[in-house]
Computed example of a mutant assay.
Amino acid sequence: MNAKELKSILQALQDHEVSELTLETPDYKLTIKRGPEVQYVAPPAPVPQNQPVPQAAPVVPQAPAVEAPPPKAEPPKEETGKYVEVKAPIVGTFYRAPSPDAEPYVKEGDTVKKGQVLCIIEAMKLMNEIESEVSGVVRKILVQNAEPVEYGQVLFLIEPA
């Protein structure tokens, strides 16, 4: 990972208010955490003079409870052996078509050629076309339109021709 890629990941975290990210590749594991901001509370109303005045203490806000995302639709392991997995090369938002009113690039059962565009992943307002690595038949689309995807997540299963 170079400095430009790291900078773009950090910018995406800030833009989407993500507090923690873990990225694992065969070569390294990167975990980025954003700490909570410290807030101070005003001291309480005055107390009688014979008692000491309490000092304001820093209050660390609790992170809101976040529901765990539903498990990713992963194909059964015995099914993936005969298919080529097309994985997300970047973190972003998956789109099946070039625009909301356009037809999807591919549908399940479509025959594709090597280099044919399968989808778009939007990352930091840039549209990145994802191309097929092989010629074959699209057997399974594992991601819904406009769904966020992670680096290395399987998007399509293609049966090689």
Rank of each mutant, 00 (worst) to 15 (best):
residue 61 P to W: 02
residue 126 L to F: 13
residue 138 V to Y: 10
residue 97 A to V: 01
residue 141 I to V: 03
residue 106 V to T: 06
residue 22 T to Y: 00
residue 109 G to L: 13
residue 159 E to Y: 14
residue 136 G to E: 04
residue 83 Y to K: 07
residue 145 N to L: 03
residue 70 P to T: 14
residue 158 I to R: 10
residue 85 E to Q: 15
residue 147 E to G: 02
residue 142 L to P: 02
residue 49 Q to A: 15
residue 24 E to F: 00
residue 42 A to E: 11
residue 52 P to G: 04
residue 158 I to T: 12
residue 35 G to C: 10
residue 79 E to P: 03
residue 74 E to L: 14
residue 77 K to M: 07
residue 25 T to R: 00
residue 98 P to H: 01
residue 5 E to P: 00
residue 140 K to P: 00
residue 13 L to E: 05
residue 105 Y to P: 05
residue 50 N to D: 11
residue 84 V to M: 12
residue 158 I to F: 08
residue 123 A to L: 06
residue 56 A to P: 13
residue 71 P to A: 14
residue 138 V to E: 01
residue 75 P to G: 10
residue 121 I to P: 01
residue 145 N to F: 06
residue 66 V to T: 13
residue 16 H to K: 15
residue 157 L to R: 05
residue 6 L to N: 01
residue 16 H to T: 09
residue 150 E to Q: 10
residue 157 L to T: 08
residue 50 N to V: 10
residue 145 N to G: 06
residue 79 E to N: 05
residue 98 P to D: 02
residue 100 P to W: 01
residue 88 A to M: 07
residue 40 Y to F: 08
residue 37 E to K: 12
residue 114 K to Y: 07
residue 110 D to G: 11
residue 134 V to W: 05
residue 34 R to C: 07
residue 61 P to A: 10
residue 105 Y to F: 15
residue 93 T to C: 03
residue 40 Y to R: 07
residue 19 S to P: 01
residue 62 Q to G: 03
residue 151 Y to R: 00
residue 71 P to S: 11
residue 45 A to Y: 11
residue 43 P to V: 15
residue 26 P to K: 01
residue 137 V to K: 14
residue 116 Q to V: 09
residue 147 E to Q: 14
residue 73 A to F: 05
residue 114 K to P: 11
residue 40 Y to D: 08
residue 89 P to M: 06
residue 114 K to C: 13
residue 110 D to T: 11
residue 51 Q to F: 13
residue 60 V to C: 02
residue 8 S to W: 00
residue 28 Y to R: 15
residue 51 Q to K: 10
residue 108 E to G: 04
residue 113 K to V: 15
residue 111 T to D: 11
residue 37 E to F: 06
residue 68 A to P: 09
residue 106 V to L: 09
residue 14 Q to V: 11
residue 145 N to T: 13
residue 152 G to R: 02
residue 21 L to Q: 01
residue 22 T to Q: 10
residue 34 R to F: 11
residue 34 R to A: 13
residue 116 Q to F: 09
residue 117 V to K: 14
residue 112 V to T: 10
residue 115 G to P: 13
residue 35 G to K: 15
residue 113 K to C: 09
residue 110 D to H: 12
residue 107 K to R: 14
residue 56 A to N: 02
residue 77 K to T: 08
residue 33 K to V: 05
residue 136 G to N: 06
residue 5 E to G: 04
residue 128 N to T: 08
residue 89 P to Y: 06
residue 7 K to G: 09
residue 132 S to V: 02
residue 60 V to G: 01
residue 49 Q to L: 14
residue 76 P to L: 09
residue 94 F to P: 01
residue 155 L to S: 02
residue 61 P to C: 07
residue 144 Q to G: 12
residue 152 G to A: 02
residue 125 K to T: 08
residue 133 E to G: 12
residue 12 A to T: 05
residue 33 K to D: 05
residue 155 L to R: 00
residue 102 A to Y: 07
residue 92 G to W: 03
residue 139 R to P: 00
residue 36 P to A: 13
residue 51 Q to G: 02
residue 91 V to Y: 00
residue 135 S to C: 04
residue 86 V to L: 14
residue 120 I to E: 07
residue 148 P to A: 10
residue 109 G to Y: 15
residue 14 Q to F: 06
residue 155 L to E: 05
residue 134 V to D: 04
residue 62 Q to C: 02
residue 147 E to N: 02
residue 11 Q to A: 07
residue 38 V to R: 11
residue 107 K to I: 04
residue 159 E to S: 12
